[in-house]
Design a protein around this nucleic acid. Structure first.
Length: 643
RNA sequence: GCCCACGUAGCUCAGUCGGUAGAGCGCAUCCUUGGUAAGGAUGAGGUCGGCGGUUCAAAUCCGCCCGUGGGCUCCA
């Protein structure tokens, strides 16, 4: 036992001196037997430490017990091992690849199993897992040398694992975790024993490519969820149900917004209400284009592929383009993006620095032949439109253009009530066009701008487009999947490929800088995410139908029409519901259609010239004069109140 | 494109062992004129995703195709 001591600070502020090499489990035991029993892992200065790992330095130590929300991550990680153990017990020739690194939601392992796993097999695996959990097998942590680890997995006939072992840099500590007869290469941390896995469920069966490369063999991926208790598992199922209620595909049907048909997979049919939403968004962005100095253009849908040969898309994007034969031998493509066409506009005549920055915006439809397996409702479509624009400017204007773009981005996301965004700066990968020095300058510019804008961002090295480093704004759908909406990219290729030039103040020709940018991104994807974000309760200014006027009986219909007329003349999207149904029925209909305002007109309203106003999500009704209501709603629409 | 699952009325779904289909909602008509989340009656609607196979007989079993969903890969 070392005589060197380290000092630990516990969450309650007390300090404890223990010999170097003490494990956090031993610390837990010193604090109390209850804590030691319930502990699943430790966190030293916020970083996970396995309970059985010796502590070599002091710091703030927190012991995570089954009662802490963070325990779920450890429990899922351990359930992952139990699942692999169960699969190996059922099919001993199975090779196990690796599990998940992120256990915040679920766990998974990729397997090379000699048989095709079926959903029935999942039940068998669960039953086996249950046995292992009930046995309360102890997790054991073991530090080994690379050679020992290699010999172990070679002897177990696991070449996949031996290959993974090769990825660990020399000199890094290699740890194994065992429970019962199962052993896997693993960093941990793990629970003390399998009995701490309170509840679990295998949820998905899928394929995945070995090392995420589709030229490699496909493994079978089994995923599941695990929690400290059955109660938490039940809560999880409830969350999933809630998410399904928010699914934009479901809301699209329920609210009569859009539909799909198998004869045009990946392309949406906007129904009147869905198109109204689309149009309101476009109107809104158009208004901001005036404010921020953009000019809107409309370019052709189809082009000779010559255009995309110049832009470089033909070479790198061909598989994603819809190609057709023209009259002659000419090959035609539906445009997958607007940038090459905008480059043609720019170079259609000699440009002066006085015209810059030139900001060309376009909303027209784009078509990309996405692989069938990637389509997903409106979030991944083959036909979509973007609030797309390209900015041509002098190189020393790039900085201020990016700043201005971020300003506009903030304004839009604020107006829409979207705050839960993630910002990423993606930098150069292995394939790129241009000079590394230029890339570095562009990347530095992006980093500086994002910081100046005050965005909390993360870096994605190697994730840039081949022609541009970019900033992305990601949002999550109801099931937690991240989708990029806004983006800005500094183009390193297009100005050169199209030979773009402008005459500067010095009378010389220069190459302009080119920025690609979008804020909502694809309108289709935006609508999907936004519907899921709002659960279909669109803010008044975007709601396809803002008001439903309900005459109590037929005798109030005429007055109802007058009210309707006042609103429609004012530009309010109102409808009269004079169906031969009771009032309660029609109120219910308006509520399930998530219409923001219900106006009831009966005898009282008719004689007073008022309407009885029922605002969605607010209790009770108010009698208001017709003109007064019109003023109120106009005001609320104009200020884009987010309810 | 790859792996797994699913596809029955406009929507949500039932349909046992193979014997050519049901419910609720919605829709239509009629009755009802009803004051803030479902009034009543009657009725119409289906080549059971498509094509082939097995069988006396297929929504049901098998094969292929299409579409949708969960993942992989890819991306707005």
């Amino acid at each position: 036992m070392s005589t060197v001591e380290i000092e630990l600070e516990l969450p309650d502020g007390t300090r404890m001196r223990v010999p170097e090499g003490t494990t956090s489990l031993e610390v837990a035991e010193r604090i109390g037997p209850g804590l030691a029993r319930q502990a699943v892992a430790g966190q030293l200065d916020g970083a996970w430490v396995d309970l059985r790992a010796p502590l070599w330095r002091g710091g703030a130590l927190r012991l995570i017990t089954t009662r802490d929300p963070e325990a779920g991550q450890v429990i899922r990680h351990s359930a992952e091992h139990v699942m692999a153990d169960a699969v190996k017990r059922l099919w001993p020739e199975t090779q196990i690849d690796v599990g998940r690194t992120d256990h915040s939601e679920k766990f998974q392992y990729d397997f090379d199993i000699p048989v095709r796993i079926t959903p029935q097999d999942l039940e068998a695996i669960e039953a086996e897992m249950r046995r292992i959990v009930e046995q309360g097998e102890l997790f054991v942590r073991e530090v080994v040398s690379a050679d020992e680890a290699r010999r172990l997995f070679e002897s177990k006939g696991e070449p996949l694992k031996v290959s993974r072992l090769g990825d660990i840099p020399a000199g890094e500590e290699i740890t194994l975790f065992r429970h019962g007869s199962f052993v896997d290469l693993c960093r941990g941390p793990h629970v003390q024993n399998t009995a701490q896995i309170g509840a679990f469920k295998l949820t998905e069966l899928a394929g995945s490519y070995w090392r995420a490369d589709e030229s490699n063999q496909m493994l079978q991926r089994i995923s599941g969820v695990a929690f400290a208790s059955e109660k938490e598992l039940a809560a999880y199922h409830k969350r999933i149900e809630e998410a399904q209620r928010r699914d934009h595909r479901r809301l699209g049907v329920e609210l009569d917004l859009f539909q799909f048909h198998e004869w045009s997979p990946g392309s949406v049919f906007y129904l009147p209400k869905g198109f109204a939403l689309h149009q309101r968004l476009v109107d809104y962005v158009r208004g901001l284009y005036r404010k921020y100095g953009y000019q809107e253009v409309m370019c052709p849908q189809i082009f000779s592929t010559e255009l995309f040969k110049v832009s470089g898309h033909y070479e790198l994007f061909k598989d994603d383009m819809f190609l057709m034969r023209g009259d002659e031998r000419e090959e035609i493509a539906l445009k997958p993006m607007n940038c090459p066409a905008h480059a043609l506009i720019f170079r259609s005549r000699k440009r002066s620095y006085r015209e810059l920055p030139m900001r060309l915006a376009e909303f027209t439809q784009l078509h990309r032949n996405e692989r069938s397996g990637t389509l997903l409702g409106l979030t991944r479509a083959r036909s979509f439109s973007q609030d797309d624009a390209h900015i041509f400017c002098e190189p020393d204007q790039v900085q201020s253009e990016i700043d201005r773009f971020f300003e506009m981005t903030r304004e839009i996301y604020r107006d829409l009530g979207l705050s839960a965004l993630e910002v990423y700066v993606s930098t150069r990968g292995s394939e790129f066009i241009g000079e590394p020095a230029d890339w570095e300058r562009a990347e530095r510019l992006l980093f500086e701008s994002v910081e100046r804008a005050g965005f909390d961002y993360r870096h994605k090295p190697g994730e840039a487009a081949f022609y541009a480093p970019k900033v992305e704004f990601d949002f999550h759908d109801a099931l937690g999947r991240a989708w990029t909406l806004g983006t800005i990219q500094i183009d390193m290729a297009m100005p050169g490929r199209f030979g773009l030039r402008y005459v500067g103040a010095d009378g010389q020709e220069h190459e302009p800088a080119m920025l690609h940018r979008a804020i909502l991104g694809s309108l289709e994807r935006f609508i999907a995410i936004y519907l899921e974000h709002t659960a279909g309760d669109l803010p008044l200014w975007l709601a396809p139908q803002q008001v439903s006027v309900l005459p109590v009986t037929e005798r109030h219909e005429e007055f109802g029409r007058k009210v309707l007329d006042v609103l429609q003349v004012a530009g309010v999207r109102a409808e009269l519901d004079n169906r031969n149904e009771k009032l309660g029925y029609r109120v219910r209909g308006a509520e399930t259609q998530k219409i923001p305002y219900i106006l009831v007109v009966g005898d009282r309203e008719q004689s007073d010239g008022t309407v009885s106003v029922r605002r969605r999500h607010r209790k009770g009704q108010q009698m208001v004069g017709v003109d007064e209501f019109r003023r109120q709603i106009e005001e609320e629409i104009m200020t884009r109140g987010i309810s």
